[in-house]
Computed example of a mutant assay.
Amino acid sequence: MTNSGFIMLLRGIVDWEWYTDLNACKVFFHCLIKVNYSDKKWQGIVVRKGEFITSYERLAVETGLTVSKVRTALSKLELTSALAIETTTSYTKISIPNLNDFVAEVNYGNIDNQSSTQNSIRFDNRLANESQSFNNQIATTNNKNNNIINRKKIFREQVFSFSNFNIKTLESFFNYWSELNSDKTKMRFEKEQFFEIETRLNKWKENERTTISRYNQKTELQTNRKLA
């Protein structure tokens, strides 16, 4: 991959499920720019179109995110098949299986007036021809990726990423907020208008302390009555 040129994204990407997740979207867009657009070799390994070699630490430096946030974003993207990740002791290879569903045009050279006009014409024609099929693909992908099992896995990972909380607190918090509605299509937290996990966890922890305190007080009173 060269540092010159550009890629063109299909407008339908705004309907993509991770578009509003800042970290996941940032990592994915970075991967779109980093992947090879033709087969190449790296240290004797064939790195094909739609793939590139990296590491979690390198991605963190390049995106300005922490390694933990990079791992979480990649986990989300892998769970929903937006990315495929192959990790070895020496490197991590990331690929975008459906690269053409996101990128409409690739140009390696410098942009001049003539090439810019030609690329715009090609892009407009391709967009007109593919917009409907892209929208259909997005709808199908969303239906598949909105599977409650995948959403539950992602929610659990998000909750347990707050390792500063007691494991029992995290477990009880997750079990409560991941409870499904009667038709098994939504978790309890998904019905909330606003839901910031860390804020909710702090309130949950405080409620646990209050409950324990009341329980201890009640036990002490009952013990005192028996002694009396």
Rank of each mutant, 00 (worst) to 15 (best):
D39N: 14
K40L: 08
K41G: 02
W42Q: 06
W42Y: 10
G44M: 06
R48I: 01
R48P: 01
K49L: 06
K49N: 05
G50R: 03
G50I: 10
E51S: 07
I53Y: 03
S55L: 03
E57W: 04
R58F: 06
E62M: 05
T63A: 02
T66M: 02
V67I: 15
S68C: 02
R71M: 02
A73G: 03
S75I: 01
K76M: 07
K76N: 04
L77T: 01
E78T: 09
T80Q: 10
S81G: 00
A82L: 03
A84G: 07
A84L: 11
T87S: 10
T87N: 10
T87V: 14
T92F: 02
K93S: 06
K93Q: 07
I94T: 09
S95M: 12
S95L: 06
S95I: 09
I96V: 11
I96T: 05
P97Y: 02
P97A: 01
N98K: 08
L99S: 04
L99E: 06
N100W: 07
V103G: 08
V103N: 08
V103S: 01
V103E: 00
A104S: 11
A104V: 14
A104N: 04
E105S: 05
E105Y: 10
N107P: 00
N107L: 02
G109Y: 06
G109R: 05
G109L: 08
I111Y: 01
N113S: 14
Q114I: 15
Q114R: 07
S116A: 15
S120R: 09
A128N: 14
N129G: 10
N129T: 13
E130M: 15
S131L: 11
S131G: 07
Q132Y: 08
S133E: 12
S133R: 13
S133T: 15
F134Y: 09
F134R: 13
Q137R: 09
T140D: 07
T140F: 01
T140C: 10
N142K: 11
N142I: 09
K144N: 13
K144H: 11
N145Q: 08
N146P: 04
N147V: 03
N147P: 03
N150T: 15
